[in-house]
């Protein structure tokens, strides 16, 4: 009996040491041959399993881009679904290597929750979804409404601030996931559903009759959405940061999944493209990868514009315009730091 107790103690102790060891994330990921990416439990267009059970969406493609750069194959991703509440714990405890989950960058999350944010990949703001039949045309008419709100989000705090600042009252209906939000909203438990405008577009597309619902014109907050990694592994943070920058730069430079093979076959006349392709300089080695890191990412998931069009653009059920998320050269504020 004593022996079995001893064995049990040693096993438990070892497994805890195993869990806590997360020194070099890049080595861990490459040794494992799989990237653990924290995503939402399901938000159509951003991250949700398709009819074949394959994860698909805007955030999912950024996970795949990182996997393609690091492991050479964008399919080698294990998706870790998380609620607004569990996401940071999953990342900080080492269950996930990287997080792409409609996550707003804030100072407290960056400094106090010990996350390192990657470049912003979607500029969003908080809006309100409401039934057209209610006859409401502005958020300032929402006094006394019941509002469905996901817990553990920045939107929860913005909501409290907005109603307080405008001297209105409301009944918060707290929900954990977007699915619960849809159930409560469509069951009329709440008059209004609030979250990031992109999330509302996704939610509306999933409702029985999307045309019966409208998103109010007011955007009450800034929600810069981006990926994140744990504090303490700068190399890993750099990899995430520059994969996102490469995806955004690729669109600016006119490199897409269709022409990347051709453009990157040999060094051309445009040095910026050459550096992205790895045919000039050795940007890959600065982040501990080979020279074709960006090429693989672009080849397998495409540039920013392609990802946007495929999952959330005007031709998808979400029908989101580029707006702020256009390249800086096209009147947007998408502005990736140069690769050099």
């Amino acid at each position: 009996m004593l022996k079995s107790l001893k064995i049990a103690v040693i096993t438990i102790a070892l497994s805890i040491i195993g869990l806590s060891a997360n020194a070099a994330t890049l080595d861990d990921v490459q040794a494992r041959g799989e990237l653990n990416c924290v995503v939402t439990t399901g938000l159509a267009g951003f991250a949700a399993p398709d009819e074949n059970g394959r994860w698909d969406g805007f955030d999912v493609d950024f996970c795949r881009a990182v996997a393609a750069a690091v492991l050479g194959d964008g399919e080698k991703v294990k998706f870790v679904p998380s609620t607004g509440k569990t996401r940071f714990t999953l990342l900080n405890s080492g269950e996930g290597d990287i997080l792409f989950r409609n996550t707003t960058e804030t100072m407290s999350r960056d400094a106090d929750l010990k996350l390192t944010f990657l470049p912003i990949n979607y500029y969003d703001g908080q809006g309100f979804l409401i039934r057209k039949a209610m006859g409401i045309s502005s958020a300032s008419e929402l006094n006394g409404a019941s509002v469905c709100i996901q817990t553990g989000t920045t939107t929860e705090l913005n909501l409290a601030d907005y109603f307080r600042a405008n001297g209105m009252s409301y009944e918060p209906v707290n929900i954990e996931t977007n699915e619960e939000g849809i159930a409560n909203y469509s069951g009329n438990r709440c008059d209004v559903y609030t979250t990031d405008a992109s999330g509302l577009a996704s939610t509306r597309a999933a409702l029985d009759d999307p045309s019966a619902h409208t998103i109010l014109p007011e955007i009450i907050s800034k929600e810069p959405l981006g990926g994140a990694v744990r504090h303490g592994d700068d190399q890993w943070a750099d990899i995430g940061k520059w994969v996102v920058n490469a995806i955004i730069s690729a669109e600016e430079l006119g490199v897409s999944s269709a022409n990347v093979g051709e453009l990157c076959a040999a060094a051309g006349d445009n040095p910026s493209i050459n550096r992205l392709c790895g045919t000039e300089g050795d940007a890959g080695s600065w982040i501990g990868l080979d020279s074709k890191w960006a090429v693989r990412a672009i080849e397998q998931v495409g540039n920013y514009g392609e990802i946007f069009e495929r999952h959330i653009g005007p031709n998808t059920p979400l029908a989101l315009e580029r707006g702020l998320n256009a390249q800086w050269t096209d009147g947007g504020i998408l502005y990736a730091a140069p690769i050099r």
């Binding site: 607004g84 509440k85 940071f88 407290s108 999350r109 106090d112 929750l113 010990k114 817990t151 553990g152 929860e156 705090l157 707290n174």
Partner: peptide, 16 residues
């Protein structure tokens, strides 16, 4: 909104 949802949920999450 019981103990788990307030201090063990939203407070936990908002403060980390």
């Amino acid at each position: 909104m019981d103990i788990v949802a307030t201090i063990g949920g939203i407070s936990l999450n908002q403060t980390g």
